[in-house]
Amino acid sequence: MHEWAIAEALVEYLNNYIKVNNVRRIKKLVVKLGELQAIDKDILLFSLNELLKIYSIPVEKIDLVDIDAYFQCRKCGHKWGLNDLNLNEDIREAIHFVPEVVFSYVKCPKCGSRDFEIISGRGVEIGEIVVE
């Protein structure tokens, strides 16, 4: 239930957002899910709905959008995706909690450098808040 903490961050944020912007109802919330963090969608959605009820924030629709994880080497420029890697369960679990530990376990497949960027699909972020 690490997803609960992530949902809590999103809902706390929405709570502040509706107060600051004087919004009564959210028509659509778009949440981007980076592939690297491997969030369990069902658990996240369950946690979001529970927390939205607790905070009494009306949200008509929640869209969870998958974003593929890609990396680019700062040394040789090579680009690769998470699917190109063969990471064991323990490493995937560690990355699930803190995506940046990928730098402990992954090197550029072309030149072997650890100096690369996560260019997309890191973790969870709000994509869009559509209000009435």
């Binding site: 560690a94 990355i95 940046e100 530990v101 730098f103 402990s104 100096d115």
Partner: peptide, 8 residues
């Protein structure tokens, strides 16, 4: 989460 591996 990173164990004793380097984390640059």
């Amino acid at each position: 989460y990173c164990g004793e591996n380097p984390l640059p």
